[in-house]
């Protein structure tokens, strides 16, 4: 296993967060993840709580990995994309296993991207990749910084071309060193990294 985490080798898990405009952005990013990727993917997309989540129905046909909504204490399967269920935080706990929480919203959001990213950074450390996409609030900025501090690889969608630039810009204000890529470039990069050919 390579020790150079900065290029994406040895990545065991990927966390992805998005808010406003996120369904379209994730529809480009998640299908780019290669079927050769042997890790797990965790995704938080802010949605109104009342709506029954259709995320699995939307994303399963588009993605090359299995797509599921997280259940509490579910052992993490490789080659699977887990979505946080509406109105719960999704965390990665020791094991690693999935854990849910009904704790208060963070940045008015439950699920919160910060909660997922920070817990995953704690468990996976340098073997984690964090990706933050379009969004209109600052949830995720602290979480992406935590991924970076734990030695993981981080990337934000370029605020110049994001549907809603606020979220990525907030992350860059906290730490300007995140890799910045347009959505198509981000998809290409993710595809290469997960296929085992990091750029």
């Amino acid at each position: 296993m390579s020790r150079s985490g900065s290029h994406g080798a040895g990545v065991e898990a990927i966390v992805v967060g998005a808010s406003a405009g996120g369904i379209d952005a994730m529809s480009i990013v998640l299908p780019a993840i290669s079927e050769a990727f042997a890790g797990a993917v965790f995704a938080v997309l802010h949605l109104p709580r009342e709506r029954p989540s259709l995320l699995v129905e939307i994303f399963a046909p588009k993605c090359r990995l299995a797509v599921r909504e997280a259940e509490d204490k579910e052992p993490i399967d490789a080659r699977t994309i887990y979505f946080a269920p509406p109105d719960y935080h999704m965390l990665v706990d020791r094991g690693p296993a999935l854990a849910l929480s009904a704790d208060p919203p963070v940045h008015f959001s439950r699920p919160s991207i910060d909660v997922l990213f920070e817990s995953a950074a704690d468990v996976y450390g340098p073997r984690l990749m964090g990706v933050l996409l379009t969004g209109a609030n600052e949830d995720g900025a602290a979480g992406l910084e935590a991924v970076h501090r734990a030695g993981g690889v981080t990337c934000v969608e370029d605020p110049a071309t994001a549907a809603v630039p606020f979220m990525a810009a907030a992350a860059l204000r906290r730490w300007p060193g995140h890799r910045v890529l347009s959505l198509p470039a981000l998809a290409d990069w993710l595809s290469a990294v997960t296929a085992g050919n990091p750029a």
Partner: peptide, 9 residues
């Protein structure tokens, strides 16, 4: 108690 949530709290 599950550690991830407890740490957060």
């Amino acid at each position: 108690y599950a550690r991830a949530s407890l740490k957060r709290r």
